[in-house]
């Protein structure tokens, strides 16, 4: 088991205005402001818990989250019992 480093969260730099609301929203402190570009950027993507707070709070709808579960620290009982889903 390892932490899935795949970024589950995408911020569209073309529509992001750098307002910073998503940075406030994130409980896991995943998003930071790129001060030079004045855009929100994903700084710690592997800590995203896919709670959708940033996506909900973004006034420009610039953020897209994968629907995949947070990270690979979850285990499936179906794998343990050899059941294909």
């Amino acid at each position: 088991m390892t932490v899935d480093a795949t970024t589950k969260i995408e911020i569209d730099p073309l529509t992001c205005t750098g307002c910073g609301l998503c940075i406030l929203s994130c409980p896991a402190d995943v998003i930071r402001l790129d001060e030079a570009a004045h855009k929100a950027v994903v700084a710690y993507g592997k800590d995203c818990q896919v709670c959708y707070l940033c996506e909900d709070d973004c006034p420009e709808h610039s953020i897209t989250l994968s629907h995949d579960i947070s990270n690979s620290r979850r285990f499936s009982t179906y794998d343990q019992f050899g059941l294909k889903i």
Partner: peptide, 10 residues
């Protein structure tokens, strides 16, 4: 809660 097993990681 453990980090990563529920959706309340902090």
């Amino acid at each position: 809660a453990m980090k990563g097993t529920h959706r309340v990681d902090n």
